[in-house]
Every structure is written in structure tokens, then in C-alpha cells.
């Protein structure tokens, strides 16, 4: 069983975005819209790399739909589903 719960993943995704990839203010939260916050193709691929380093799973880019990239929470849920599938 993976040690990554949806909550832990959300926290990790949020942390990477806030601290490493985006220049965001104090109002940025796990529910903030990622594209509005400046997420682009490069940033999202760098995010996938960081997630792979943390979890060992590479998230297929075909899963990066507008719905999954809505916010850190939805993205973490997508990654968690992928983790569950092994």
C-alpha cells in the first residue's frame, strides 16, 4: 500500500507549486486555479518530474486535462489514482 494519501499528495503538489515553480502570493491555496496562477507546459512538466522524484510514478501527460489541472487538489487526486493503479 502506498504511503501517499490524497492529503499528503495535495500538500506535496501545493508545496512544489508554491515554493519552486510559481510566483504566487499569500492567497494561493490548494483550491486555487493553476492555469490562472501561471501554470504552463514547462511548469507542469517540471511538476511531474518532482512528483516522480517523490513518488516514483510518472504521470502520463494524457491525464493532464483541464479538469485535473483545475487546482492542486484535483491534480493530487489524479496522481493518487495513478499511484493506486501501480
Amino acid at each position: 500500500m502506498s504511503e501517499w494519501t490524497p492529503e499528503k499528495l495535495t500538500a506535496r503538489v501545493f508545496e512544489i507549486l508554491r515554493d519552486e515553480l510559481l510566483e504566487v502570493g499569500g492567497d494561493f491555496s490548494p483550491q486555487s486555479n493553476l492555469v490562472d496562477a501561471g501554470l504552463d507546459s514547462l511548469a507542469v512538466t517540471q511538476l511531474m518530474l518532482s512528483i516522480e522524484e517523490s513518488t516514483g510514478v510518472w504521470v502520463d501527460e494524457s491525464l493532464l486535462t483541464p479538469e485535473n489541472l483545475e487546482c492542486a487538489e484535483t491534480l493530487a487526486a489524479c496522481v493518487h489514482e495513478q499511484l493506486q493503479q501501480g
Binding site: 515553480l21 510559481l22 510566483e23 504566487v24 501561471g38 501554470l39 504552463d40 514547462l42
Partner: peptide, 8 residues
Amino acid sequence: VNLRPKGS
């Protein structure tokens, strides 16, 4: 590839 800060 645009390397400008994202979101600012």
C-alpha cells in the same frame, strides 16, 4: 521556451 516567472 519561455523562462519568465510563472504568474507574475
